[in-house]
Design a protein around this nucleic acid. Structure first.
Lengths: 334, 334
DNA sequence: TTGTAAGCGTTATCAT
DNA sequence: ATGATAACGCTTACAA
């Protein structure tokens, strides 16, 4: 194991002072070009690698952005993080990802950890147990900027980026109504999560605007997985009058619904139309292919990064809300 | 923005020395219980949060594990990272994820970055452009332990964890042959990636052991995406004699194949059987559901972490190979 | 059991 | 344009 080379080693070799080396390596103009070149050459020759730990410590700030999500196997989150991290890397940041597993307690621990790491900024999609965003205020106290995306606290008063969930659901239901559907079911989760609440509001509003009743029996909140979609649909099929369309808050749920419908001998979309949310890859694998409400994940990632970057390096916390338009991708299931 | 509390602040408040505070907070036995309690109480009262930057700097080691993958949208990688990171968190590590995008140049930069961060360890799945693992030796030079998983260099001589890709493919083909299939196609990628090479070897060996010819026309290397599976299958269907089974190296590719077959009016599995690799969620969405070679991702993650942990804190680099058994999940498509 | 002193590698500030 | 000095918060070796 070789000795680690520091700026002092380079300075010594060159017979100059290490602060000059530091300046040269950071491309500070006040260094003569000749010295600068000499230093760079020597640094390279000696295999110098900056010690970020020392640099971060000295600057009291790590060049890292913390990402806090409930869970990162959901396609939405993994794609988002992938895009976000490409974006952040371009600007010289590293990314640390933490999963709260939907638990408030873990979320709080992660926030402590983030502070302890003196990250440059944080983006977060909150856990379902977090009703408000109070515990994030700790970040403010120590001057760390943060931006919420997708799952935001109800009382949110910091910058955040959202899909227009309300509009997406409204449009999806409107489409179904235009196709003559009248008994439109809504499949969601029992958890109170902003995103899904908004989708529900869009659903009811569209029904009302078209003079259709909102029926409790058509609203089933089993959960967010494929099997939840399946079991929810089983319940629906036991009704005296079955639904003629289903809007589910996630594609996986829709796929479960389609499986259940087909198993019951019903045709999709002839007997029952199905629409999902998220444009998950499995929607394309499904037969028929799934109509879905699409959110441009890469745009969302870029916007989130933009809002965060705007705050990092600015003196004040700011409050800006960005809502991204949702678009319906019409495929075979509707 | 509040002043940050340090151990010196606590010490001052208590009229003791800050090294005692340091010791107490790290639960070092040589501190009297009484003092210890006093310190913890005060620390909590003052809202002390350790500065990890300072600690890491002083220890010349950050409590972080670097994860290097080609890409993390693939279900395999996002699930792996999710599981790995839960595992690592349990032992008090944080996780930093970097994507090479399959590019050697980026991979090298990431390695520099990892060194610069003095991470405690690294796990990596290498880019397709990396023929050997030479560039990882830099890590060794500075004493950072690393373990490869899934995509490993050809000449690998450090610890690594693999699926038994050879066996998985061998078993899949054997299954198809037992079902009477004789013209079994193989869909893969043109890139030389260890994982897929091994799957290919298993494929040919199984054919040979059953006295079936390995036919070039049945081997199509279009890529790893759904559309690649689709177009590869189109080519296969133009042959004078079509295949009666398809083994693809990823589930997504298989799904593309199934779509193409169905579009051509062929039945799956009656006319053509299809088997994939990875047990991707979309395999379940597909119709028929996809038979696939499954690798236990959580086991792989746990094993990778285990091998890494064994090396962190040990004086010597070690070389241990773990091969995880692959199992076929039989569903409708075969 | 506790205190003292030194130092990790870097950068900011001030002096030359 | 470059050098000298100090400091960031923490831990370790040594002394008391």
């Amino acid at each position: 194991m070789k000795k680690t080379i520091t700026i002092k080693d380079i300075a010594q070799e060159l017979g100059i002072h290490h602060t000059t080396v530091s300046r040269a390596l950071r491309e500070i103009k006040s260094v003569k070009k000749e010295t600068r070149d000499k230093i760079w050459r020597k640094a390279h020759e000696m295999g110098y690698r900056p010690n970020r730990l020392a640099r971060d410590f000295r600057n009291n700030r790590s060049n890292t952005i913390g990402v806090l999500v409930p869970e990162f196997q959901f396609h939405f989150f993994s794609k988002f993080i992938s895009d976000f991290s490409k974006e952040a890397t371009k600007s010289g940041f590293s990314v640390m990802v933490f999963q709260s597993d939907g638990k408030l307690k873990i979320e709080k621990e992660i926030i402590e950890s983030l502070i302890s790491y003196r990250v440059s900024g944080v983006i977060a999609s909150i856990s379902k147990e977090a009703v408000n965003g109070e515990h994030f205020e700790l970040l403010e106290n120590v001057g760390i900027r943060y931006v919420f995306f997708d799952r935001v606290p109800e009382d949110v008063r910091v910058s955040h980026v959202l899909l227009d969930n309300y509009q997406g659901a409204y449009d999806a239901v409107s489409l179904l109504i235009r196709k003559g559907r009248k008994r439109i079911a809504f499949l969601s989760t029992p958890d109170k999560i902003s995103v899904f609440n908004d989708r529900f509001k869009g659903y009811t509003k569209a029904l009302e605007d078209n003079n259709l009743p909102v029926k409790d029996e058509l609203i089933v909140r089993e959960g967010l997985l494929m099997e939840d979609g399946f079991s929810a649909t089983q319940k629906l099929l036991k009704l005296s009058e079955r639904p003629d369309a289903i809007l589910a808050v996630r594609d996986e749920v829709s796929i479960g619904a389609i499986k259940c419908l087909k198993k019951a001998g019903l045709r999709v979309p002839e007997d029952v139309s199905v629409i999902g949310f998220d444009n998950d890859p499995s929607g394309i694998a499904s037969e028929p292919e799934l109509t879905t409400v699409n959110q441009s994940i890469s745009k969302m990632a870029a916007t989130t990064f933009e809002l965060l970057l705007k705050q990092i390096g600015s003196k004040t916390f700011s409050f800006e809300k960005r809502v991204l338009k949702a678009e319906i991708v019409v495929r075979g299931s509707s």
